[in-house]
Design a protein around this nucleic acid. Sequence first.
DNA 1: TATTACGTTTACGTAAACGTCAACATATTT
DNA 2: AAATATGTTGACGTTTACGTAAACGTAATA
Lengths: 137, 137
Amino acid sequence: MSKEPKFKTYTISDLSKEFEVTPRALRLYEESGLLGPKREGNKRIYLERDRVRLRLLLRGKRLGCTLSEIKDIFDMYETKSGEKGQILMLLEKMDDRRKKLQIQRQDVDMALEEIERVYQKIRKSLDEIEASEKINS
Amino acid sequence: MSKEPKFKTYTISDLSKEFEVTPRALRLYEESGLLGPKREGNKRIYLERDRVRLRLLLRGKRLGCTLSEIKDIFDMYETKSGEKGQILMLLEKMDDRRKKLQIQRQDVDMALEEIERVYQKIRKSLDEIEASEKINS
DNA sequence: TATTACGTTTACGTAAACGTCAACATATTT
DNA sequence: AAATATGTTGACGTTTACGTAAACGTAATA
């Protein structure tokens, strides 16, 4: 009866398994300032907050962001800057981010359309092959 | 009056400028099998086909694909495989690709929603600051 | 003719994002 | 007590996607 967790905690291998990343990666993310697990002695203890961050982080990666870009975004989320100037800069940054995402949306949609087009073309030629197979049987 | 172009052609710096990539990058893309410009003596002559490919290539990059993934996609587009087995494999590959893109779409949309949420929050705190500025004037 | 612009190949350098050890500590199981 | 599992910190290796510089060819321009 010493340390009751009180909150759910995760070890490095818990998160490692859940999100299918290596411990090495998790340590790197920490070194890059993206995660900030507590320590119990020497060992890393991750809280829910880290888990959420990790999820966002990986989503960012899938979108092609670098770790430092992701860092920027995280910082953006957390700035509780009382200063007006800071806030204005923040809004601007978020606008940039939004624009990039919108371009990415277009890119994805165009890629999907192309895949679809080519897919149909290929299917058609497959159908033709199968038709000729029937005849020759 | 020797070589009439007949088709529109581009030099390396033409494409370099149009798409804002360095010549070095274009040569790398060629080395990676993504572009295949003709040669006039020693110099690279790009045709429309290369220009289209470059556009697709860069779109792929924006989506976070590696050059070799893009190569796979290009190969996919071009397989005029008469063989049925080949075609089936191709269709499967395209399905994978489509799934990945759909996940990316979701990722982008979720990211956009989050940006929007945070954006509104920040705006609100900005409004509050400006309101208190008016009072104190 | 000398300079400038544009192109070439070859080759080494680099930043990012890990992988892959080594060498060690700690805790639990056998 | 010995082995096993899990964790730690270095530190060097690797791949990708170029950057950068050297050394050179060719063609138009001053």
